[in-house]
Design a protein around this nucleic acid. Structure first.
Ligand SMILES: [Mn+2]
Ligand SMILES: [Mn+2]
Ligand SMILES: [Zn+2]
Ligand SMILES: [Zn+2]
Lengths: 123, 123
DNA sequence: TTTCTAAATTGTAACCGTTCTCATTATGGG
DNA sequence: CCCATAATGAGAACGGTTACAATTTAGAAA
């Protein structure tokens, strides 16, 4: 448990929606914390492996990270304009995805689902 | 309608699953067609704008393209091992995604959904 | 057919996010 | 404290993508 690790976790904690590794790095720099970009990436990889953060790919292909409430599986409702994210739970979709895969003979199933739109503020 | 345009479309047509821009470029080169990589990207951008191809992001962040049967909206069941892709139609998910967005005050809704697993051949 | 112009093509360089390298630094158990 | 071990981080390398400008081409007009 290093100073840098704490710094990255705290930066993630106070971030509103999803943000990129470089966003976090800049945020830390602005806050006076000196943390290497490589370290930010390393911490994010670890946190991701531990299931402590969600990762999504932006349309531009950039990885975006967000501290994740629970370790449990869920999906996102994201505003294309401001990046605001709500978490969704969708039991019906979970079972649908599972069944459709099984019925095609697939195993080791998983799935990803994201709903996007314009939030009330941005509409 | 140039020779290169025809070549890219034909390469896409005879590709089985999704493939990257660089895959297509290599495939064309092997087939004796001389087409610049920049042109392949340009054609794929156009085809995407026209809705003639699907684009998905690999976990590595690479863009993968596939000629799309219909212009209609659909989703994918993809094998993580061999890349094989089946197209899915899921009316129940469509309405669910729409309703969940509306109920949070969102507009201009869209969504993406992909189911992944190991296909019978790869299991 | 020949001419002409706007559009397409393409090699190359730049771009950008990410990963790698490895010398340096820090951690924490004994 | 000491030291083995792990983390850090500046910079280079990497890989996919895009920008650019020079060249070529398509296709319409003469
Ligand atoms: Mn989440
Ligand atoms: Mn498709
Ligand atoms: Zn918004
Ligand atoms: Zn397979």
């Amino acid at each position: 448990m290093t100073r840098q690790r704490r710094a990255v976790e705290s930066a993630l904690a106070q971030a509103e929606g999803f943000c990129s590794a470089q966003d976090l790095h800049a945020q830390l720099r602005d806050a006076g914390e000196r943390v290497g970009l490589a370290t930010v990436y390393a911490q994010l990889r670890q946190l991701t492996e531990q299931g402590r953060v969600d990762v999504v790919r932006s349309d531009a292909g950039e990885a975006l990270y967000r501290q994740c409430g629970e370790g449990e599986h869920h999906h996102h409702l994201r505003c294309r304009q401001c990046g605001h994210v709500d978490e969704l739970h969708a039991p019906a979709v979970e079972t649908w995805a599972q069944e459709i895969g099984v019925s095609s003979g697939y195993t080791a199933l998983s799935h990803s689902l994201e709903v996007t739109g314009l939030c009330p503020n941005c509409a």
